[in-house]
């Protein structure tokens, strides 16, 4: 059986679902905002694209230039060693490791365009933990294990040949 094909198809399905869900969530929020605007003048949805409104703790200091720093904008909910410091890249696993087909997710704001994006944090697996000073622990909307898709303390090496954790990447899925 061609598992790669099935993995690829299911990933596409998941991505589509994730994007669709997010859009629907946004629609729901916008709808809610319209209904309740007279009662709650400052809503999170309104704030997301309003540069004059103060941002979250992470978003206030987030930058887009250096992806080896913990305040790089996509790292708002990452936890672990940064693959960008380990011979890999922002969505690239270092040599000799395997990219996990599974991930946890975060929603991070890009300070350059003011939009929020869905980020898939995929672990790179199969080698000993990367020895680096680039250890980060973003906690924005990070959830406990009973909300696993947003939990950054689980070793997300499901579906790889080895569960040995090496480092974490932050691949962009799309705007929410």
């Amino acid at each position: 059986m061609n598992w790669k094909l099935i993995d690829s198809a299911s990933e596409k399905l998941s991505r589509g679902l994730a994007k669709g869900t997010s859009r629907r969530s946004l629609l729901a929020k916008v709808g809610g905002a319209a209904s309740f605007a007279p009662f709650f003048p400052v809503l999170p949805v309104a704030r997301a694209q309003d540069a004059d409104v103060p941002l979250s703790n992470f978003a206030r200091t987030a930058q887009t230039k250096d992806d080896t720093q913990c305040n790089y904008w996509r790292y708002c909910a990452i936890d672990g060693a940064l693959c960008t410091c380990c011979g890999g890249g922002i969505h690239t696993c270092p040599p000799g490791t395997e990219a996990s087909p599974t991930s946890w997710v975060g929603t991070c704001r890009n300070p350059e365009d003011g939009r929020s994006y869905l980020i898939a944090y995929r672990d790179c697996c199969g080698a000993s933990m990367c020895q680096t000073d680039c250890h980060c622990d973003g906690t924005e909307r990070e959830m406990p294990a009973y909300r696993p898709m947003a939990d950054n303390e689980i070793i997300w090496c499901f579906g790889t040949k080895s569960m040995s954790y090496h480092c974490s990447t932050a691949a962009l899925v799309g705007p929410v």
């Binding site: 979250s56 703790n57 992470f58 622990d137 906690t139 909307r141 990070e142």
Partner: peptide, 8 residues
């Protein structure tokens, strides 16, 4: 002392 999402 902190803002929300500083749970760690």
């Amino acid at each position: 002392p902190g803002e929300h999402w500083t749970q760690k």
